[in-house]
Design a protein around this nucleic acid. Sequence first.
DNA 1: TCAACTTGGTACCGATCGGTTCCGTTTGCC
DNA 2: GGCAAACGGAACCGATCGGTACCAAGTTGA
Lengths: 180, 180
Amino acid sequence: MPTHARERLVKAAEDLFFAEGIRAVGVERLLRASGVGRASFYRHFASKDDLVATMLRGYDTQLRAWLREVITRADGDPLAMFDGLATRLSATNFRGCASINTMVELADPDDPTRRIAVEHKEAMIRELRDLLGTAPDDDLPEQLLLLFDGALVSALREHSPAPARRAKAVAAALLASRPA
Amino acid sequence: MPTHARERLVKAAEDLFFAEGIRAVGVERLLRASGVGRASFYRHFASKDDLVATMLRGYDTQLRAWLREVITRADGDPLAMFDGLATRLSATNFRGCASINTMVELADPDDPTRRIAVEHKEAMIRELRDLLGTAPDDDLPEQLLLLFDGALVSALREHSPAPARRAKAVAAALLASRPA
DNA sequence: TCAACTTGGTACCGATCGGTTCCGTTTGCC
DNA sequence: GGCAAACGGAACCGATCGGTACCAAGTTGA
């Protein structure tokens, strides 16, 4: 596979959009970073927005698989997600959450790209509910994701894994307060 | 007030930047929304970024006063901040947190405007520590702000005050788990 | 070897970006 | 009433935005 312009574009999109934001990165930057010609870009993607959507779908797939893996490996202990989060926050290129960033950057609620970001979070909640076997009327998955998102946003400011530790401590108190 | 171009610009900035994002709103939009002439804009502000910074400083002042007021009125009960948050989330024009949104949109850690957004959150933590009389080595203020930010981000997706209720329940479990 | 296809490079498009300059009018103050 | 300051409107600047068209070089399988 010598060329594969499409994959290189997606990779550059993941790096640049995540690092600097969607609106901050122009098509020109993507082309230079990926080494792809301008024409090839529009042969593979209908628009810049199409590339953003593709990147977000990949983010959704990867993060949901990560969540499943980290909780399953801990025999269903939801606290494990915060240990795994600490690792993610320690990445040198950490820049928050692609889904949250997109919801902030694309304000229009009807924007189909924003909708992908919203649906990712909803899917994460469903994933948690499934993994933990939570009752349908139990808010635990929403509360855990609230802690998860809170830690992500805090880390965006602190640039350290400390928020994951804090969120875990809060989650532990929450779980301990619930009837066995 | 027939003139007062500066105040009208700040007001328009609060509305538009908050509703659609900093990068999404051009100077032209600000001029039309405020009725201010282009030249007057640059008589009062050195740049668009200067207006953003001014708007953020106002947001910081307002939100810190709000936090003080809502907790003081509840005789120092930190849970009151989540009741107040529910009201804020119910605003029809709610679009998250100006500070978080700025940190997402302006990625460069050395950007002075981004720094204002970061310092706002740090000031909120100090405010909480002061209001609650928390010990310096106690993470409670950071944990409460993590819940606060988590609720703000969740509401950005749900467009309902429910996240504030959820964050309050988690905060109650956290406070109950602490030694009296 | 030769055709079918994909590639990167470049010139170009209209639109919009943030910012500067000039001009004529309106405003508040004495 | 007069004067200086503050004002709104518009023309204009270079740069960049997302997107299109065309071209030459390189890759592929038969």
